[in-house]
Amino acid sequence: MAIDFQNVTKTYPDGTVAVDDFSLHVPSHTCTVLLGSSGCGKSTLIRMVNRMVDPSSGSILIDDADVATTEPVALRRRIGYVMQDSGLLPHRRVIDNIATVPRLNGESKADAHRRAHELMDIVGLDSALARRYPKQLSGGQQQRVGVARGLAADPNILLMDEPFGAVDPLVRVELQRELQRIQTDLRKTIIFVTHDIDEALTLGDQIVVLKKGGEVAQIGTPENIVEAPANDFVAQFLGLDSARRSLSAAPREGGGWLVSDGRGRPLGVVNAAPDQRSETD
């Protein structure tokens, strides 16, 4: 399930241009991260895929079929959607929240609940939580429920709109790791929106750095972007010009290298740089 944005523009009635002539190819079974600060149109872009927003011009294709020709409700039921603050229904128990889409698709309650229990297992939620209401869970648990709900109908495409933005940094790292593990097994086509550069570098097979108005600053793999930022904007956004990411290595007594950041703060040790391994051997 590849996704293509073709010359997409979105102008809101008040004249705000959220996205201007944006094109992108999202390959199947990979995770593409849209990275940018607020107001860069990244949420607008992701919401165009499931027609929560319709473009003013241009088109979005899923496996070469224009989404504009698909009825929005049917389209949304076959695309997983995970959002910030989980967006769970507060009056439904965890199990029923996860079973939402299968139930909408007409599955029996027993089947939908069985599937929901499987998903709780996949996203690492204790099945004892099934009968709880969302607000009886921690933020991190709620986001796991959100991910489970997004996966419930076994969609090929998963849209994730800053899903881990509201949880504390430790839990966020844990959730990212879980997502990577899930993605290794399930190989969905994921579009992931974030403003967190570390999150983008962790999760993205492809990263799209966005400026205001959905203007693409750079598209590339995490390695491309860190090694060769296309312009000052990208370098600045990544913090490449700041002390944090300009690392230096000094030879260490007894072999290997000591790595420090731009302020001279020691970060760690490289036992042997990969390209120099032959020399040290």
């Binding site: 949304r76 989980s86 229904l89 709900r149």
Partner: peptide, 24 residues
């Protein structure tokens, strides 16, 4: 945010009204 999420999961306008807005 709740109604938006319900809609994004694939509920129709009626379903949002009956399953989300009226109960809440």
């Amino acid at each position: 945010a709740t109604t938006d999420a319900a809609k994004a999961q694939g509920m129709s306008g009626w379903q949002v009204l009956i399953k989300v807005e009226i109960p809440l």
